[in-house]
């Protein structure tokens, strides 16, 4: 609850003070705010209250800590529009944010018990499994795990997916993604995966999963995208049915 008054706990009041200084430009984007001890001294608060105030703002992505350097005001988030076409790359390209992806793994695997059910395949059918990291301005922002039936995109193995989007590859193969069931969750990753996007295991991530169909209703792709919460927010429009 963002609105604070003089009766609110001090850390909430401080949180709102810092928030409005960011909004007013007194603390400009990309610069460090005063240190915890300076803030504690200025407002005569104990360091714990200062830390609580800062931790909420870090969660919201307004602030971020840089090891050994201090606490900085974050730049604007890349909005990911849930209702527009295309994948992550398209969205980021449209907004001209320096983006690239690095592929960690791209391999065939058996669909197995779960993905065969999810994607209407036999257990022994092959799937392309891809794990990659999306970067924005050279910082990792998301870990993506992508499952595509081999029979849907036989040529997938030959395409350099660091240069071309999967959406492009679908189009080249005459496939048009038409709709996707999306689920948004918040969870904690295992330490080894959290590390890939510069998070620790006690920092939550947002997981967006997509089960995509084409015009014939055939399931063509399942993705799980683990997104740093301080880098992206999810935006959608709704209307009365």
């Amino acid at each position: 609850m963002s609105d604070a008054n003089y009766k609110s706990p001090l850390y909430i009041q401080l949180r709102e003070v810092i928030r409005s200084k960011i909004e007013d430009g007194e603390y400009p984007v990309g610069t460090a705010i005063p240190s915890e001890s300076q803030l504690a001294e200025t407002y005569d608060l104990n360091p714990l209250s200062v830390r609580s105030a800062l931790s909420a703002l870090k969660y919201e992505g307004l602030l971020r800590s840089v090891q050994g350097k201090g606490v900085f005001v974050n730049g604007p988030k890349a909005e990911r529009d849930l209702e527009t076409l295309g994948g992550y790359r398209q969205t980021m390209d449209e907004r001209s944010i320096a983006a690239h992806t690095r592929v960690l793994l791209k391999a065939l695997r058996p669909a197995g018990p779960y993905y065969s059910r999810l994607l209407d395949l036999e257990e022994d059918d092959s799937l392309w499994f891809t794990r990659r990291i999306d970067y924005m301005d050279n910082e990792p922002v998301a870990l993506e795990e992508i499952y595509i039936p081999e029979k849907i995109l036989p040529s997938y193995g030959d395409v350099d997916i660091e240069l071309f989007s999967i959406y492009d590859i679908f189009t080249w193969n005459g496939l048009r993604p038409t709709d996707a069931d999306q689920t948004l969750r918040v969870l904690f990753l295992e330490p080894s995966r959290a590390k890939l996007i510069n998070l620790t295991a006690d920092q939550a991530v947002m997981e967006l999963s997509n089960l995509t169909r084409d015009a014939k209703g055939q399931k063509i792709e399942f993705t799980r995208n683990y997104v740093r919460p301080d880098k992206t927010e999810f935006f959608t429009h709704y209307a009365k049915e």
Binding site: I12, G61, E233, T236
Partner: peptide, 28 residues
């Protein structure tokens, strides 16, 4: 109420919110 827009992101629950929601303060 005809249409609108919505943004979803993460925050840390304040002590008061956490108490109502029966979760630990500061949890996401």
């Amino acid at each position: 109420m005809d249409h609108g827009e919505e943004k979803a992101s993460i925050t840390a629950a304040t002590a008061e919110e956490a108490e109502y929601l029966e979760i630990k303060p500061d949890s996401p």
